[in-house]
Simulated scan of single mutants.
Amino acid sequence: MWPSSTLLPFLYTPPSSAYVAAMSVVSLVSLANAGLAELRGNHMAYSKFWHVVSGAGATTTNQRQRGGGALLKSRDGMLVAYAPALVAAAASFAVPGAVDGARAEILSAALAIHFLKRVLEVLFVHRYSGSMPLDTAVTIGTSYLLSTVTMIYAQHLSHGLPDPPIDLLYPGVAVFAVGIAGNFYHHYLLSRLRAGGGGGGDKGYKIPSGGLFELVVCPHYLFEIVGFFGFAMISQTLYALALATGTAAYLTGRSCATRRWYQSKFEEFPARIKALVPFVL
């Protein structure tokens, strides 16, 4: 049995669902562990860190030898990662009883907007210079799909339960809006850096500037975390909070790895620029 929600007055009482309970633990622990792996230099095979920091081969042949599987163009790989979750969030409105009440509708809409933004960024904003192993794309896509479905399902199970004493629904909408807008803006700034970067490799990378890039190397991750806590505030379920906390742990690790990468590639990298949180971290 879960403890009473009076311990956390901003959460619904967790449902008696072994699946949701297990997913809450798995999401938090696995994402936190992935963040630690980033700090240790064990990076997922979809970014510049895999090739440069981890010392993986730079060529397609070497990638195949290391990964032992098929490669996708990075753009296609990210579509595989994001599209299933988008479809699931949008489809929840068509499943009878899946979306009950204003809170559930807003949550599903926010999830659909989040992944639609990601898909549109893949198609029209991001610049790519490498490949992604198929198994990595499928793993990421499965993770996003499961987290989206579980968040919607946990919200469905809370229907009819007493509302939490502290209602965070509409503040959560505002937090989510800030997160998605800030994340998009800084992704746009990154894309402009690489628009004329040439044919890939290290030559396509520059020290980011503009926006919060003047203070941290990963403001897009900072706003991604803000967006996930927006989900948690909208939902007010334990699973959404666990997912947001795990996401924050993972992206903190990636941000520190990113800062370390920039320091290794650019002698003039400013020491005043933090990894994720201005003036702090």
Rank of each mutant, 00 (worst) to 15 (best):
Y12K: 00
S209A: 14
E267M: 04
H114Q: 14
V178C: 11
A56I: 02
K73R: 11
F10E: 10
A242T: 11
V226N: 05
E38L: 03
R260D: 13
G204C: 10
F213Q: 04
V125L: 14
S92K: 09
R192V: 13
Y19N: 03
F231H: 10
G141S: 08
S47H: 00
C218G: 01
L71G: 00
L193A: 13
L145W: 10
Y46P: 00
M151P: 00
A91N: 07
L238F: 08
I234Y: 11
Y188M: 11
R75I: 00
V138H: 03
L212P: 00
G210V: 03
S143R: 08
A98I: 05
G253R: 07
R272Q: 11
V277E: 03
C218K: 03
E38Q: 13
G179C: 08
S235F: 05
A248S: 07
L169N: 07
S92D: 10
M1Y: 12
R75T: 01
I234K: 11
L161Q: 15
E121Q: 13
S108D: 11
W50L: 03
A232K: 01
M78G: 00
S255H: 02
S92H: 09
H126Q: 08
L190F: 10
L169F: 08
Y262H: 10
S27P: 00
P165E: 15
I152E: 11
H186Y: 07
H220S: 09
A249T: 04
K48I: 11
Y46I: 09
D135T: 12
I152A: 12
A45C: 01
Q263K: 14
V226L: 09
L161E: 15
W50N: 09
L243A: 15
Q236H: 07
A195V: 06
E105K: 14
T136Y: 05
S30F: 06
R194W: 04
V29N: 04
W2Y: 13
M23N: 07
D135Y: 13
L145C: 06
T139K: 14
S235I: 07
F279L: 13
A85D: 07
S17I: 06
A181E: 04
Y250Q: 14
R127Y: 02
P133G: 13
I180M: 08
V20C: 03
L157N: 09
H156F: 08
G130K: 09
M233S: 14
S255G: 08
R127P: 00
V173N: 06
K265R: 15
A18F: 06
S143F: 12
A89Y: 10
F184S: 14
P219I: 02
L276V: 05
C256V: 15
S255A: 15
A195I: 04
V226Y: 05
V80S: 08
L134M: 12
L215N: 09
S131F: 06
V87D: 03
Y46R: 11
Y12D: 01
Y12M: 01
F213K: 02
M44Y: 01
